[in-house]
Write a protein that binds this DNA or RNA. Structure first.
Length: 263
DNA sequence: ATGGTAGCGCTGCTA
């Protein structure tokens, strides 16, 4: 199974690129974030024509997540289910079962600034994600979370930690909240396959030629339960998809993260 | 130098 995750920064603006990318890379399951797409406007028919089922959770101009699969798509759960949580109103989580794997498309809140209310909401959302895992799946089974976590797990996951003093994405409480999620029993697949490297980065700011200068961050992650992580045969970030060539539309500011799994 | 770019949608917010 080829599993991929991609923050597309508007599915409407990225339709052509996403369809081209699917045709070129043949993901069996593609997890999307920042679709900025209400469920009523989700292009399920376009994915269907490519041979994929889909499930979406979006309400309009911000956020929005989806799962696209050609190996089955059942037991869909949007958001945090029936649990009433103040931080769960936004469309940032959807999960389903695809070919025996429980997959979660995750879009962690940005947090904006450390001294803002949004930073606390980010930490609360991550605690709710851990509770969601405890309530809905088993780390002894095949489980995968893919998405934009808006956290760089280590200093080497940003281009220059000196530029991040006092900023979100690298603070100790955020990293601790991520570790609490992973303590469910999850492995950072790309990091495990690239143990000695910085990055590989998955996001670069649109501004200031950051991609060209290599000023990126590794904030898009695939986290797998131990039984699923044992099936990993390869993992990479597709930097090509971040380039602007060959299309009238801009690329997303995120690159897809791809993980290949043995049966 | 408190900038810069993209998306949404039409004003300024979010990232």
């Amino acid at each position: 199974m080829r599993l991929a995750t991609w923050n597309v920064n508007s599915l409407k603006a990225r339709r052509g690129r996403v369809e081209e990318w699917i045709a070129e890379h043949g993901p069996d399951v593609l997890l999307l974030q920042e679709t900025k797409c209400a469920d009523a406007a989700f292009p399920a028919g376009a994915f269907s024509q490519l041979g994929y089922e889909s499930a979406c959770h979006g309400d309009g101009r911000w956020n929005g997540v989806a799962i696209v699969s050609r190996v089955g798509l059942t037991k869909v759960r949007a958001g945090f289910g029936d649990r009433v949580l103040s931080a769960s109103a936004e469309c940032r989580l959807i999960s389903a079962e695809c070919d025996g794997v429980r997959v979660y498309s995750v879009y962690v809140p940005n947090g904006r600034a450390v001294d803002s209310e949004y930073y606390g909401a980010k930490l609360e959302w991550l605690a709710n994600l851990r509770a969601e895992l405890d309530a809905t799946c088993d780390p002894a089974a095949a489980v995968a979370l893919g998405g934009d976590f808006n956290i760089a797990p280590e200093d080497r996951d940003v281009w220059d930690i000196g530029e991040f003093a006092g900023l979100t994405h690298v603070t100790a409480p955020e990293r601790e909240a991520l570790r609490d999620v992973m303590a469910f029993g999850l492995v950072d697949v790309v990091r495990r396959l690239h143990p000695e490297e910085a990055g590989p980065f998955s996001w670069w700011d649109y501004r200031g030629g950051a991609f060209h200068k290599g000023e990126g961050m590794r904030i898009d992650l695939v986290l797998a339960s131990a039984p699923l992580a044992a099936r990993v045969t390869g993992a990479f970030v597709d930097r090509e998809a971040r380039k602007g060539q060959g299309s009238e539309r801009q690329p997303s500011d995120h690159a897809p993260v791809v993980v290949d799994l043995a049966p």
